[in-house]
Design a binder for these strands. Sequence first.
RNA 1: GCGGAUGUGGCGUAAUUGGUAGCCGCGCUAGACUUAGGAUCUAGUGCCGUGAGGCGUAGGAGUUCGAGUCUCCUCAUCCGCACCA
Length: 920
Amino acid sequence: MDYNFREVEQRWQKAWKEQKIYHVEEDLSKPKFYVLDMFPYPSGAGLHVGHPLGYIASDIYARFKRQKGFNVLHPMGYDAFGLPAEQYAIQTGQHPAITTKQNIARYREQLDRIGFSFDWDREFKTADPDYYKWTQWVFIQLFNHCYCKKCEKAIPIEELKKHLAQQGTEGLHLAETKPLSFTAEEWNAMSEEEQETTLLNYRLAYIADTWVNWCPKLGTVLANDEVVNGVSERGGFPVERKLMKQWILRVSAYAERLLKGLETLEWSDSIKEVQRNWIGRSEGAFVRFSIENQSDTLDIFTTRPDTIYGVTFMVMCPEHALIEQITTPDRKQEVDAYVQWARNRSETERQTDVKKVSGVFTGAYAINPFTEEKIPIWVAEYVLAGYGTGGIMAVPAHDSRDYAFAKHFNLPIREVIAGGDISKEAFETKDGTCINSGCIDGLSVKEAGKKIIEKVIEMGIGYGTVNYRLRDAIFSRQRYWGEPFPVYYKNGIPYMLPEEDLPLLLPEVDKYLPTENGEPPLARAEHWQTAEGYPLECSTMPGFAGSSGYFLRYMDPHNDKEFVNKEKNKYWENVDLYVGGSEHATGHLIYSRFWNKFLFDLGLVCKDEPYKKLINQGMIQGRSNFVYRIIQTNRFVSLNLKDQYEVTPIRVDVNIVHNDILDIESFKKWRPEFADAEFVLEDGKYICGWEIEKMSKSKYNVQNPDDLVERYGADTLRMYEMFLGPIELSKPWDTNGIEGVFRFMKKFWRLYHNRENEFCISEEEPSREEYKILHKTIKKIEDDNERFSFNTSVSAFMIATNELSDIQCNKRKILEPLAILISAYAPHIAEELWHLLGHTDFIVTATFPTFDGSYLVEKDANYPVSFNGKTRLQRKFSLDLQPKELEKIILEDPEVQKWLDGKTPKKVIIVPKKIINIVI
RNA sequence: GCGGAUGUGGCGUAAUUGGUAGCCGCGCUAGACUUAGGAUCUAGUGCCGUGAGGCGUAGGAGUUCGAGUCUCCUCAUCCGCACCA
């Protein structure tokens, strides 16, 4: 009988669980290593083979590190708040907590069957009050801090208050929503409400009016990608732009540190680049343009101060607060209409017709501080409210967007950088010489920019500055299934609940929909107010709230006194290896870094970056199978004959297709309408077509890991998922190949057994050849593990097994280390063999075998000998020879002599252990 | 448009980082055994050619004694950003 993987795997999984062998505690005698997976959102569909890909890789690495003597923290939990459970609740009335609990139970069952080495004692879900208590707590800290740009860290709001009371805004260098200016007297004269409102301008968590995509029918704010053609993606309900009070995190305060921190991280270049683009740093100048007959100024940000002499018009975004004030009466009607129209367009809509030029003249004029000219002020949607100041100076000659606008509205174009031909297009280059530019004529772009900045500082109308594309993160959601804000309102001003009142529990509601008058679902809760009767915040936190600091909580998951104990944090520091999808590059991975840097500023954690090394595992796509039905019949034609008929392809469940051959009997049973189907076969078989698509239920191409574990065992599944290809690559799932790994597992088992399947191991001293196979494998596995090349590792195991099986090696000194090597990949079979080998401890505690290079050194070896790069001969040489000696022997070789034919070679290139090349 | 990748047999991939391209596996071909299976084992399998041999890493150039690997151009595919002043 062959290896009984079912019995063995179940037995060991039970033993591991009962003896808690993967439980880990701080141990100062060992170096720590923290391996983390991006925790899953437990959806109703359960796991498919794509999900565990990253978990298997991280599990292999965690097991490898343990055997290398590290104390490994490898936890797992669930990101439990989220939309699907809420949607299900709205439809069925079932509480999302119940759905979530069921889904988690199913996930756990599936995960357990794959044999992961998670420390389940540290498990939590973000929807646990014990956990979200700390999410709320961090939010309070964010509210109570602001960001000092001078010292580049968060400081308590109390310090700000002190500063304001003593010197007003004088000497303040804080990240802020908009620049404010008042004296200490003015501050001290403010009412509490006024002061609180003012402080919101600086807090790291603040509430403010924001333009959002509001869907009245769904009763919620939608993200840009949830809006398609002006209607909601789900349901197709109209979406309008609306100014709403939203909680916002001042992520932008950390832009520079988020950017700089990237340099210290071992992340892929592509994902770092995505984050760099997302943060979007640009250097330039802030300049105030005065407006004719107005006391207010039009403030702009430009990266090209050197082109200031080329400004021929100004543009404000449709959301700009000054529009109403500066528009002249004769232009009012037109401007109002345009603003109304533009404001109601979603960002997605604006993006889709980027090329269409639209705008309107306000009738007002700004004054160019350098030329004193009157410049018309326009409103146009190509200027965005969320970037810079929401206003620009337009230089059509040297900016393609301004150029298109000027051409469309017939505005003047003035060339100020020499070298281009502005009759056709804008000349955008950044190396050129300034012309027609007064005081900066003849200067290079770079020098001119510097000089203009000096001048505007002198004139008191601006300064050089750095602007970031990174926006503050909207933090409220008008939904039920999320963390409630620890916030109550007094006279419309938000206040934080006292910390000892946390967690603020998510209340029960009778329905999970928004209320009839558009308030979030929490407004349905009875007594949603403080003990004193103050109303509580009705929106909840977004999905990324719970996942931003979760990695810290695993270090100390049951602490109800603090978020994470300092000593424990000091031991575990941060995540050494983080594995997850690259789709989180601009979401979770930015927010989490922000969150952690903030906690670092507060001295609560010891590292300012959360994830040292990041591996982005690829997606596993589905491979759908098709059958071809001849039109208007119930006859199906095999793939290569289908061109002779008119056919409709129909997706067929991949589970009734093997190696693209349809199991006809199962097909007839699959659907009642196919019960009496007929088939046109080729070579007696029905061959199905295939296509690579996303893995999804509706495409019948989902491979459930449970089925594969049932049929081939967890070890085979683990090894096969790794064998599929490099971990970062997206690849289609192909069940056909798993047979090869399955055969390997059986062959591996047979190494330790005789023909009668009795465990049979020899204590004999292995031969040099046998040691060579082992040490070659140790080196390969160790190297591959360190560079996360798990697919080549699996190949190495196969090669070693083939070689050992060929020479019928069953020596303990070879097979025992081999079992340790494979235990990270196939822990169940390794554990079984380990115990058969007579060990009583678990293989996870075994020491990774040491590599002995001396076995690999050849005494002599065949070298290819090439002439001018063309390989002609194989010659055997001793490896002990010095290059000079080697060269002599080669040149004396009769074949070489013959080839040289009396000529002297120009040079002889000897690449150690590789090749000998004679160049003539 | 900008940025980042990737391109090797019928398929997934490998190549000690510039040194005999195609390891390992799937599939396929032939054979053995058989309790007839979607089992196991053996041999073969980049392409062309009976053969010697020739050609081969998306295409084209270049550097080099030697290029899948380095440089430049072109093409294709994927991902991210996209009026960011």
